[in-house]
Design a binder for these strands. Sequence first.
DNA 1: TTATTATACATAGGAATATTATGTATATGA
DNA 2: TCATATACATAATATTCCTATGTATAATAA
Lengths: 113, 113
Amino acid sequence: MLFSSELIKGTLKTIILKLLSENKRMYGYEITQKVKELTGDRIQLTEGALYPTLHALEADGLLTTETEYIGKRVRKYYSLSKEGKAKSKEKVSEFSDFIDTMKFLLDIKHKPA
Amino acid sequence: MLFSSELIKGTLKTIILKLLSENKRMYGYEITQKVKELTGDRIQLTEGALYPTLHALEADGLLTTETEYIGKRVRKYYSLSKEGKAKSKEKVSEFSDFIDTMKFLLDIKHKPA
DNA sequence: TTATTATACATAGGAATATTATGTATATGA
DNA sequence: TCATATACATAATATTCCTATGTATAATAA
């Protein structure tokens, strides 16, 4: 079962920043595979969403890059900058609060007065 | 503290359907106030997002409407249709699974091998 | 009495974010 | 040698939401 893409909207940056806080450096394709693996195939990042987001995070100064060649094939590693590390904590924390709020909101048993 | 609108993306329909499953009928403004109240002002639905979404859910056959006049002011009540009730359960259940997946994903302590 | 705030609907224009489709290229396994 | 996996990237499009604007009535405070 794949989550409807609606749900994933707005969480992509948080996912990327969190994964990079757990791993010194990762490249794009690796991130897609890691997310697939860790979610049991329930979240599959598309390249069309991933790469522009990585570029945006880099442009915001949250990520730094190093390019390496594996044979003749290029590979672009991303790492968190200092600001990126702070942002990662902030985003995960905010998402965690959001989860708590939503759990409360969706579990309520309010009957009309 | 207000949640960044990014996070709320994709959850609006679920929130509306859930609230309507707990209340026989609600009108738009009432929904915004209820969400504000239940989330301690952390989620504030804007009218520009709410009304188009209500219209879309109605067009999809998930909601039915009754218009009433309170004095001279119009008020449009929304209720879940049969399909809407099923969809509400489905969406809440999916969101609950999504929360579990995201919690796992964002709590992991994976170190590079 | 009059100004402000709250109630209550709606839509147009624009921004942000994601999808689909496409393109390029190398490496690996059947 | 053909298909699949690896690995990057972008353009066109779709979705979804926000901001701003518009209309109007009701209640409250100055």
